[in-house]
């Protein structure tokens, strides 16, 4: 089945078939990243604008490499060096960029819904690279690709997501994707950072999403452990007393990881706060697939760009 969409704003709007198509396409693009000449002419003459209103190393570099390996021209704009500092609104920025006829606009913004706003006025394909606490669809897709590589398929897996679920767009996108593809998701974290009632808002299969009373309960028998970054930039509300206390109660260490299945894998979207949400010996250990995630990120973004920006000029 093809992807009949102009934009990728979130996983919530994708059905299982569309997710499978993206993952299958990404699988092929993984090969290109291992070739000597890591470039194909597929998007020659297309222009991709990376519009980042929030800091990013991985996602921005990953989108830029993905665009370049498909022979598209990639332009990076970060808010700090753009006219945003002169007070230009998001809509005005978008209209001006659209006037230069890009084929895709990749956008990261601290406000949930900002990519949707841009998508409504831009003819270019708009790809959400993380918006506020809403979604980060390409992260969930690269996580799924990584899990599939180690576990063959998502169906029937138990995935523990640990940390600040409340503020995490990564968790949101992953919950949509994992439950849609048949995994069971268990959430754990400080009670102040667990959005109870989420299972009623998210259109998940009954029983496929639940909250654990403790990190230990969530980890027990897990096939996949996903730790989330404590987003220091979003922690003004006093959700937990100190980082040290967070680490003691919810940090992933080797002892806790033993509760998971012996062949469990550990994911983290990065950047990691060593010693806070994850100990260094776990992050750098043999069960960690954190760098596989980064590697798969390029393939997933190539697949998205190919599927959304490969066609007639916008």
């Amino acid at each position: 089945m093809p992807l009949h969409r102009k934009d990728l704003l979130g996983i919530a709007e994708l059905n299982a078939g569309e997710i499978e198509l993206i993952l299958e396409t990404a699988e092929t693009f993984r090969d290109i990243n291992t070739r000597q000449i890591k470039k194909v002419p597929t998007l020659r003459g297309k222009t991709v604008i990376n519009l980042f209103f929030e800091a990013s190393t991985r996602t921005r570099t990953s989108f830029e490499i993905a665009a370049k390996r498909l022979s598209a021209d990639a332009i990076n704009i970060s808010a700090s060096t753009s006219s945003v500092v002169k007070g230009e609104t998001l809509v005005d920025t978008a209209l001006n960029l659209q006037a230069m006829a890009p084929d895709a606009i990749v956008i990261r913004h601290s406000s949930s819904g900002a990519p949707a706003r841009v998508a409504a006025i831009a003819r270019a394909a708009v790809i959400n690279a993380g918006d506020g606490t809403h979604e980060h669809p390409t992260q969930a897709l690269l996580d799924a690709l990584t899990i599939r590589h180690h576990k063959r398929q998502l169906g029937g897996l138990k995935v523990a997501i640990i940390g600040d679920i409340l503020h995490s767009r990564v968790a949101r996108s992953n919950i949509h994707l994992l439950t849609r593809l048949g995994a069971e998701v268990v959430l754990a974290g400080p009670r102040t950072l667990l959005p109870f009632g989420l299972e009623k808002v998210i259109d998940a299969r009954p029983g496929s999403l639940r909250f654990a009373a403790s990190i230990e309960e969530a980890l027990r028998g897990a096939d996949v452990v996903m730790t989330l970054r404590i987003q220091l930039e979003r922690q003004s509300g006093g959700f937990f007393p100190t980082l040290r206390e967070y680490s003691t109660q919810f940090g992933l260490n080797r002892r806790r990881l033993e509760l998971a299945k012996p062949d469990a894998i550990v994911l983290h979207p990065g950047p990691i706060n060593r010693g806070v949400e994850i100990d260094s010996d776990v992050a750098d250990g043999t069960t960690s697939v954190i760098l596989d995630q980064v590697e798969n990120g390029v393939a997933v973004r190539m697949a998205i760009l190919y599927l959304l920006a490969g066609g007639e000029s916008a």
Partner: peptide, 16 residues
């Protein structure tokens, strides 16, 4: 990925 008609065909062809 090397086709010369990618920007004119309707749906993106499946890549193998």
């Amino acid at each position: 990925l090397y086709r010369d008609d990618l920007s004119t065909v309707g749906d993106r062809p499946v890549v193998n």
